[in-house]
């Protein structure tokens, strides 16, 4: 245990003041020191406990527990905010709490789905994972968010689309369970991007033609030449930076990338189905989560997909879902077919 000359109450004030004044490095340093204070640990553990089974009420409202890894790589960490409690004052904790709520609201209100598993599963997240950790991930049970390094990345909870992205990995795990490699892996990633941006659009009340179609907007610091991690409307244009290089996402099947890295390029080739979704959503117009978003959700949960489904198989499932929703001669169905063909994919037949 490291000793600190700064007393815990002062460290807590430094955290609050540094975050208020946008001084994340100082906040991080103070938060780490505070986390190493055993008295603080003990007090926090007494005050806030994780959910117990008897706490569960209606399955149509979220049950969120946000925990703090305190800059370690151990999960779940110390519970710091759970359902119904007031804001903690820690931006990462409160953004995670609000983001989980916004994601729950999209799936509940638009698709009548209660949480990740459709049965009201509690939503758990861990923030402040690792030291200056440049990532967010889904570990099969919970969402985990790093604070970023402050030079390239800000904290990962700052982007609502990233929070929606991670939670959607849980939805996919509980539905089509697409294998995380090659085309099925790129579909898995694309579905997380699709519903991640729809969480943002739903929260903001945006129509398809008003949306940015960016994933992870605001995540890069001002030092980076880039708008976001990915652009669904124009894959390959999200960033072009001396350190990061150029956004490698293809916008057409002709540029599909064969690589051994990144589980076969799951975060790269997702640009192809991402663009198909954005094209179809803008062509149909209106609120994307109500139209083409509902079709993509129907395809994901249709039971027609298998773990190694490829782009053409998924495209076929979306066209059949569009036929069921709008009719086989509807212009909206044609917009879905056209979108897939524009990115070089012929929708497969059942």
């Amino acid at each position: 245990m490291r000793c600190s000359i700064v007393p815990p109450y002062l460290l807590a004030r430094i955290v609050a003041a540094a975050e208020e004044r946008a001084m994340p490095a100082a906040a991080r340093a103070a938060r780490r020191a505070l986390a190493e204070t055993p008295m603080v640990h003990a007090a926090r553990r007494r005050e806030i406990l994780p959910f117990a089974a008897e706490d569960f009420g209606s399955p149509r409202s979220p049950r969120r527990t946000i925990s703090d890894a305190e800059s370690t790589e151990t999960v779940p960490g110390v519970p710091v905010r759970r359902e119904g409690e007031t804001a903690s004052g820690d931006p990462a904790v409160d953004e995670a709490y609000e983001g989980l709520g916004a994601t729950f609201a999209l799936f509940d209100e638009a698709y009548d789905r209660s949480s990740i598993d459709g049965r009201g599963l509690p939503l758990d997240a861990t923030v402040h994972y690792g030291e200056e950790y440049d990532n967010a991930f889904w570990n099969g049970e919970r969402m985990v968010f790093g604070d970023g390094d402050g030079e390239v990345f800000r904290r990962f909870t700052i982007s609502l689309s990233v929070i929606g992205h991670e939670l959607t990995h849980g939805v996919t795990q509980h539905t089509a369970n697409l294998a995380y490699s090659g085309q099925s892996g790129a579909l898995n990633e694309s579905l997380s991007d699709v519903f991640g941006v729809l969480v943002e659009q739903h929260r903001r009340g945006q129509n398809a033609d008003e949306a940015s179609w960016l994933v992870g907007e605001g995540l890069f610091t001002e030092a980076v030449h880039g708008r976001a991690l990915r652009s669904m409307a124009a894959p390959g244009t999200a960033y072009d930076d001396p350190l990061l290089g150029q956004d490698p996402q293809p916008a057409h099947m002709d540029q599909y990338v064969q690589t051994d890295e990144d589980d076969g390029g799951v975060h790269i080739n997702s640009g192809i189905p991402n663009r198909a979704f954005a094209l179809a959503a803008v062509a149909v117009g209106g609120r994307a989560w109500e139209g083409v978003g509902a079709v993509w959700y129907a395809a994901l949960t249709s039971g027609e997909l298998v773990p190694d489904s490829d782009f053409a198989s998924f495209a076929g499932a979306t066209v059949r879902a569009a036929s069921r929703r709008w009719g086989s001669a509807a212009v909206e169905r044609e917009a879905v077919v056209d979108a897939w063909r524009t990115v070089g994919i012929e929708p497969g037949r059942a």
Partner: peptide
């Protein structure tokens, strides 16, 4: 040593 993946999909 090559690190790939992550939500950002950046390789180093």
């Amino acid at each position: 040593i090559t690190r790939s993946g992550g939500v950002a999909g950046l390789s180093r």
